[in-house]
Design a protein around this nucleic acid. Structure first.
Lengths: 225, 225
DNA sequence: TCAAAAGTGTTAGATTTACACCCATGA
DNA sequence: TCATGGGTGTAAATCTAACACTTTTGA
């Protein structure tokens, strides 16, 4: 096992997940009270260790699955966090990932089971270790991503109104958008399809429901890179 | 030592460096033939192991210093590469970093000492393990960075001509730029200062030399983020 | 005197922003 | 009938892209 690199030291590798959700017009993440030492009781991201038979990406997927029961979530690596004493107990280097989920797909009983809750991104308390840094970087990367690729629908139900979509963009960017300009821009995106369905939950008149068309997106020449 | 996480397995952590330089109008990186097993003799990035008393960032700085003799290089993390079998010998997870250096600061004897050479970014051969992936991602990130922040001067001498700067942007973007539009854009950047010095090495008439003013950059309200 | 690189402005087109009113409905 | 959120177009301003000639000088 140690034939090549035995003179070097090994470290524990963990993954930590910044799980973004959108609810009540606000961008939120899932955090919980840490249930293990060191740091028991502190607010923390959900994480896990990378084991020897899985890649780091797989460890992140597995951790997300344990937490949400969902597979194939949209997930991107944020980066490695490797200060010597970032973990108060041992030398642990952590790779952070962010994921986008539709909060409706997330069952409330899982929140209790894992002792987690949704917290508004603007009101994150002090977190364990360097987790606040991770959240900050994840948020910046996610903002950047949303500005260039239509990943927003992953935070919404399969069918959504344009107002919902606009509120989502506003929450992520932290700035209000002009309704007419926003709709003009969406209309140019062939991969956001209007359906004939109408949502009446948020207005008397009702609003058309839209959906994301993945095929149209992949065929859009503007996004062939 | 293992009081908290002993049920989990540890891994070796390495850093790999994508060192960008600009010479002869071309964007290049430093690669060499690997001098250790496994993979001896294959083209490879320069790397090293993270030791127990240094952060991952420090390991990258140290590795860059060993290689170049330079400290405080511009350096950014590319990300963690963690496939199970990415290293043919052992489980090694690697954190890639890119760095920008002025090739004139790099002494040629170091090239020989480390068995390295500058290779045009468009002509990178097949590299050891997943190093080609690292280069690809590093290049994309560097492009992105250069498009939004004036980091280009780190690839140039302290004094440079506008033509040099333009060639640099062209090499990084892989596309030609219009000379007049480019110069107009540069003129608006107060942190790129014209000097009274003239460079005559590349033309009979001579071209004004410019320099980057860090203070002006930090005070530029457009870049307060 | 001429080859080679440096330097310089203007205009058309495209994109972005600002802005206000009518519609449909359930309470 | 009215309060609420849904839906729609135009014009000004800004930004981007295209484009060609003069200058300087060493060989």
């Amino acid at each position: 096992m140690t034939q090549f690199y035995s003179e070097h030291s090994k470290v524990w590798l963990s993954v930590d997940c910044i799980i973004f959700g959108f609810d009540d017009g606000k961008l939120k993440i899932l955090i919980g009270k840490r249930q293990m030492d060191p740091g028991r009781g502190e607010w923390s991201l959900y994480g896990g260790f990378v084991s020897s038979d899985e890649s780091v990406d797989e460890a992140a997927s597995r951790t997300l699955y344990e937490l949400t029961g969902l597979r194939n979530l949209y997930m991107r690596q944020v980066g490695a966090f490797g200060k010597v004493d970032r973990d108060p107990g041992e030398r642990v280097v952590s790779i952070a990932y962010y994921a986008l989920i539709n909060v409706n797909d997330y069952e409330d009983n899982l929140l209790k089971e894992h002792g987690l809750q949704w917290v508004n991104i603007e009101e994150i308390p002090q977190l364990y270790s360097d987790h606040n840094e991770m959240v900050k970087k994840a948020r910046k990367m996610m903002q950047q991503k949303l500005a260039h690729e239509p990943v927003g629908f992953r935070l919404l139900p399969a069918l959504f109104t344009l107002t919902q979509l606009q509120r989502l963009y506003e929450a992520v960017n932290g700035a209000e958008l002009d309704k007419r300009n926003f709709r003009k821009r969406i209309k140019e995106m062939d991969y956001i399809e209007k359906t004939e369905l109408i949502d009446k939950t948020s207005s008397k008149r009702g609003a058309y429901l839209y959906r994301f068309n993945k095929r149209a997106y992949n065929e859009d020449p503007n996004f062939k890179i």
